[in-house]
């Protein structure tokens, strides 16, 4: 009996582990270009959300930003609402986490 329970527990553990791996692997990298309609900085300044209007579909997409360089650009308004952005982000569990967030404009 003990042996059967052990086997079941090991199998359950393996299942949980594989599900975790699948969950990790399920984060999908997305790309888009869009115009910022809203920026909200967290009170502690360590993260922000930006709502982008997709230039192709006009859908509104909320992206969470945590990298210091981009946060700094929000704080001193080098990036503001109305700017056009090219972004890459991981979409997972209903949350979109920025991997790249750059203005399209350059000289």
């Amino acid at each position: 009996m003990k042996k059967i329970i052990s086997i079941i527990m090991v199998m359950a553990l393996m299942l949980i582990s594989s599900l975790t791996v699948v969950k990790t692997a399920s984060a999908e990298e997305m790309k888009m270009t869009g115009t910022i309609t809203k920026i909200a900085l967290a009170a502690d300044g360590k993260s922000a959300t930006a709502v982008l209007k997709d230039s192709k579909t006009e859908a509104l997409v909320t992206i969470t930003i945590t990298d210091d360089l981009t946060l700094d650009k929000f704080k001193d308004k080098r990036i503001v609402e109305g700017d056009e952005i090219r972004t890459k982000y991981d979409a997972e569990g209903g949350k979109n986490t920025s991997k790249m967030f750059k203005k399209t404009a350059g000289c």
């Binding site: 090219r86 750059k102 203005k103 399209t104 404009a105 350059g106 000289c107």
Partner: peptide, 8 residues
């Protein structure tokens, strides 16, 4: 920003 965008 030179050359057409950030770090281009």
């Amino acid at each position: 920003a030179a050359g057409g965008g950030a770090m281009i």
